[in-house]
């Protein structure tokens, strides 16, 4: 692909189906995986919300429900060894990178068996072995870290690509500018994926960002794209193009994925900065339902496939909660442990 050309999402190899031909590029196993991941994310968070409301967990929970196609579509285009950096709204990225829900649930419950032994909680789950370099409590902070991971890959010549997931609220941060600019100047194998869910807390993305994030690619001399983040196939195709390009050593891409969080900013948010109509409009564009509809129409998977996956997820969820609840609380002797390598 020529330098500085925007990733075109309209000029995709166009099939006649709802996915513009992308569905045909995906194997049945990939389709099953995509459904599994999107449903896992949703059921994990629905379950976490119940546990929170039953006072079984505390702290801040930021739900990704409604945005599942972005993490899933991007991670579907990654190889196993690739890296991601994540955000405060990180459950979806974590699950899409292959995390275990029992260890995630145990972390939310603050137990020793959680991903971080209870030290991190929802906002800090990481699984370095899976390539998940961590959720983050600091908006924008994952972006330069992703740039650093990509620099490491370039220096080590390990052929890996790093994704930085971040919100529209990170667009205004200095970390965004510095991270993207450095990656562009060094031609690093990174893909910057902005999940524009329209709001950062009560602040609209257009209020916070003087120029749309997808329009900033030319300013850094890199391709950028604006996509329907609730269309799994469009996310996948765009991410695949960008990831392949990065892996070939042709440098970073900036993708703005338009989506919506169905829930409040945190589990406690009950503020009225969005209209009921707006929420309903986006719920009607639910990414999982759209995916299922397209797959059904293609007759690639049938009801049994979906039901089998749903059944598997319910068993996983039941196990995750039981595992978390049965797991021991950490004891105070670990408080000062893990601060340094001993």
């Amino acid at each position: 692909m020529a330098e500085q050309q925007p990733v075109s999402t309209n000029g995709r190899a166009g099939g006649g189906d709802a996915s513009n031909g992308v569905l045909e590029q995906l194997s049945d196993d990939q389709l099953r995986w995509i459904y599994l991941i999107m449903r896992r994310i949703r059921r994990f968070e629905e379950t976490a919300e119940e546990a929170f409301r039953a006072a079984k967990m505390r702290g801040a929970l930021h739900f990704y429900i409604g945005e599942e196609a972005t993490a899933t579509g991007v991670c579907a285009a990654l190889d196993d060894g690739d890296f991601i950096t994540s955000t405060h709204r990180g459950h979806g990225h974590c699950i899409a990178k292959g995390a275990r829900m029992d260890k995630m649930m145990a972390e939310l419950f603050g137990r020793t068996t959680g991903y971080c032994g209870g030290k991190g909680g929802s906002m800090h789950i990481a699984d370095i072995e899976l390539g998940n370099l961590g959720a983050n409590g600091i908006v924008g902070a994952g972006i330069p870290i992703a740039t650093g991971a990509a620099l490491g890959s370039k220096l080590r010549k390990d052929g890996k690509v790093t994704i930085a997931f971040f919100g529209d609220g990170a667009g205004p941060t200095g970390a965004f500018h510095e991270g993207v600019n450095v990656a562009a100047t060094m031609n690093l194998p990174a893909v910057f994926v902005c999940e524009n869910n329209q709001y950062g807390m009560a602040t609209h993305a257009d209020f916070a960002n003087a120029a749309a994030i997808h329009n900033r690619g030319p300013a850094y001399g890199i391709p950028s794209a604006s996509i329907d983040g609730n269309d799994l196939f469009e996310v996948y195709a765009t991410a695949k193009t960008a990831i392949d390009r990065a892996r070939r050593g042709e440098g970073p891409t900036l993708i703005e994925s338009r989506t919506y969080r169905h829930k409040g900013h945190t589990v406690l948010d009950q503020k009225n900065y969005r209209t009921k109509e707006e929420i309903a409009e986006w719920v009607a564009r639910d990414p999982i339902e759209r995916f299922v509809k397209a797959v059904n129409e293609s007759e690639r998977l049938d009801e049994d496939d979906f039901q089998a996956i749903d059944g598997q997820i319910e068993r996983e969820i039941e196990h995750a909660v039981a595992f978390a609840e049965a797991s021991p609380w950490p004891t105070v002797d670990v408080i000062e442990r893990d601060v340094y390598v001993e």
Binding site: R58, G59, G110, R111, C116, G118, K119, G120, G121, H124, W329, P330, T331, V332, V334, I335, E336, V339
Partner: peptide, 16 residues
Amino acid sequence: AAHAPVPFSEPLEQAS
């Protein structure tokens, strides 16, 4: 406070 970042889990946080 302890010589550590503030841990998430309640019994750890409260004791830190």
